[in-house]
């Protein structure tokens, strides 16, 4: 699961449509074809390297298959999105812990560590917005990702996160306000 070689550019790796599938006779391949790349895109809003994004999404599929019963038909996407977001959050927590430990070491060189974990993003503006999203409270960032990255409806977001549609609106509104304030503060 952890050793898949990940190319660094999209030109070097096939997109979903290039991967041969036998979805008609293979339910897992069907789920994979319908959700995998969208899920990688989704968690890419929280995580900054493709390899970790893929690991998180593959773990979400594996977690789904470890359930004693599969999700009800039609609910697989919501399950996978929820599991992938939880996995992405877990990765962020691990990174924070690792950074705290490294910073506590006398020989730690912060610049090298940061550079290794945060490859430069071409657009400074994109970088600033993503950084702002990643600092939001969990629900706010998840709602923004599901709304503006995955293009889900409020109802679908509510189902994915197990909250009410009203809460989705509240988290989205507060998240956008928080992003705007962070951008204003840093400009």
């Amino acid at each position: 699961m952890r050793s898949s070689p990940i190319a660094q550019t999209s030109e070097a790796t096939p997109r979903m449509n290039d991967i041969p599938l036998t979805a008609a006779v293979d339910p897992l391949a069907d789920l994979f074809a319908r959700h995998y790349h969208d899920l990688v895109d989704l968690v890419s809003g929280l995580l900054d390297d493709n390899e970790t994004c893929e690991e998180v999404v593959q773990d979400a599929f594996a977690a789904m298959m470890r359930q004693s019963q599969p999700p009800r038909p039609g609910a697989e996407g919501a399950y996978l999105r929820s599991a992938a977001l939880i996995g992405a959050r877990s990765q962020l927590r691990k990174r924070r812990v690792r950074r705290r430990h490294l910073q506590a070491m006398p020989s730690h060189t912060p610049d090298n560590t940061e550079a290794a974990e945060n490859p430069a993003i071409a657009s400074v503006e994109t970088d600033r917005v993503l950084a702002a999203i990643r600092t939001l409270p969990r629900r706010q960032s998840e709602v923004l990702l599901l709304r503006f990255q995955a293009d889900l409806s409020e109802t679908e977001i509510a189902e994915t996160l197990g909250i009410s549609p009203g809460s989705v609106k509240t988290h989205a509104s507060r998240g956008l306000v928080a992003v705007r304030r962070q951008l204003e503060d840093r400009s």
Partner: peptide
């Protein structure tokens, strides 16, 4: 701004050919 940033980040993502095999 949020939509554009997330869209640009998504454009940079790629998937490995053996992802399904891993699953």
């Amino acid at each position: 701004q949020v939509r554009a940033a997330l869209g640009q980040r998504a454009d940079e993502t790629a998937v490995s050919t053996d992802a399904l095999d891993n699953i």
